[in-house]
Simulated assay, not measured.
Amino acid sequence: MEFSAKLNELAAKIKQQKGAIQTEEGTKTAFVLPFISKVLGYDIFDPSEVCPEFICDVGTKKGEKIDYAIMKNGQVQMLFECKKVGSDLTINNASQLFRYFHVASARIGVLTNGQKYRFFTDLDNKNKMDEKPFLELDFLDIDDHIIAELFKLTKDAFDIDSIVNAAGELKYIGQIKKIVSAQFASPDDDFVRFFSQKVYEGVHTQRVRELFSTLTRKALAQFLNDQTNERLKNAISTSSTPIDSSSIVENKAILAPAKEDDVETTSDEMEGFYIVKAISRNVLEGKRIVFRDAKTYFSVLVDDNNRKPLCRLHLNGNKKYISVFDESRAETRHELQSLDEIYKFSNHIITAAKLYL
């Protein structure tokens, strides 16, 4: 099963069973353990890989335990602190995670209530967990933009350097999106003043400020509707089937149709890339492995060089394919029934990787 399908499957379960869960233990059993095992791919029955009730001695506090530690080669990679489904994931609820993060030398801390997950690292101060997460997941409102980043946390693709390198950008983009969303819903004085000073030359009295607060909110709502309707019109104009213009509905987010020269990198392509990268890292440094997306295929390359291909993926049609290369760089295409079948071509990918040592 592909990664996005695993997320959707667990999301459906959470939506159906959330109301029946009354305890933290129930939350862990029903939601958190399936996330760790089925979505991230770790063996929850192997304590050397997933250690429950992980003991962290902090100062004078001995024998304190954190819910789960994800291990690799005896080293802690991630720590999970779990709360009952429906609980607020506040900084106060993360106090244990803050303490354990430093002692266990983990790089990823996860605070979850089974439905929502907040992922932390140490961008601000090394070995000290940040107060703000770099990634947030809500299973009842999955943001498609984070799927590729979430995939990096899976067992097969886990690459701490890649995760931490991307964490800074993810953290600040997430915060900016929250601010923009809040301003669209209820613009604050500074935001309103920014616009009113550009369009109104009179004195900014209290009455004027109140007026422009209302006008700004209306203008933002109309702007979103105009953008949505314009995209719908474009979609309608490129369709061979007549569509009644009354189907244009306010506040429905529609993706803009792709232009002739547009190239969109999909979540399937990113998942495929991380699978190939995980395989190739047996031979090459992870930073040497990159991708280039084209309209008809998705290339995984070494040193960002078209003459150093590891493979090509064709994942956006009705059928999926992988093109692999032999020692003479001859290309052979094979059909894939699922993204997991990329692993069947590990020997081909490693053979190609060895050419670029």
Rank of each mutant, 00 (worst) to 15 (best):
N73Q: 14
N73K: 15
Q75L: 05
Q75G: 04
Q77N: 02
Q77I: 05
L79K: 03
F80I: 07
F80P: 10
K83C: 01
K84I: 03
V85T: 13
S87F: 14
L89R: 07
T90P: 03
T90C: 00
I91R: 12
N92W: 02
S95T: 13
L97S: 03
L97N: 02
R99V: 10
Y100H: 06
F101G: 03
S105C: 04
A106R: 05
R107G: 07
V110H: 02
N113V: 00
N113D: 00
K116T: 04
Y117Q: 08
F120M: 11
T121Y: 06
T121A: 07
D124V: 14
D124H: 12
N127I: 08
D130I: 09
E131T: 11
E131C: 01
E131Y: 11
K132P: 00
K132I: 14
P133D: 05
P133S: 01
F134V: 01
L135A: 06
E136V: 10
E136K: 14
E136T: 15
F139C: 01
F139G: 02
F139Q: 04
L140S: 14
L140P: 04
D141W: 03
D144T: 12
H145M: 12
I147L: 13
E149D: 15
L150T: 11
F151H: 14
K152R: 15
L153H: 07
T154I: 06
F158D: 04
D159S: 03
D159W: 11
D159H: 07
D159Y: 09
I160Q: 03
I160P: 01
V164C: 06
A166P: 02
A167P: 00
G168C: 10
E169N: 08
L170I: 04
Y172I: 15
Y172T: 15
I173R: 14
K177R: 15
I179Q: 13
V180Q: 05
V180I: 15
A182S: 15
A182K: 10
F184N: 07
A185H: 11
A185Y: 13
S186Q: 12
S186F: 08
S186Y: 08
D188H: 12
D188T: 06
D189S: 11
D190V: 05
V192P: 13
V192C: 09
F195D: 07
K198P: 01
Y200Q: 12
V203E: 15
V203Y: 11
H204T: 07
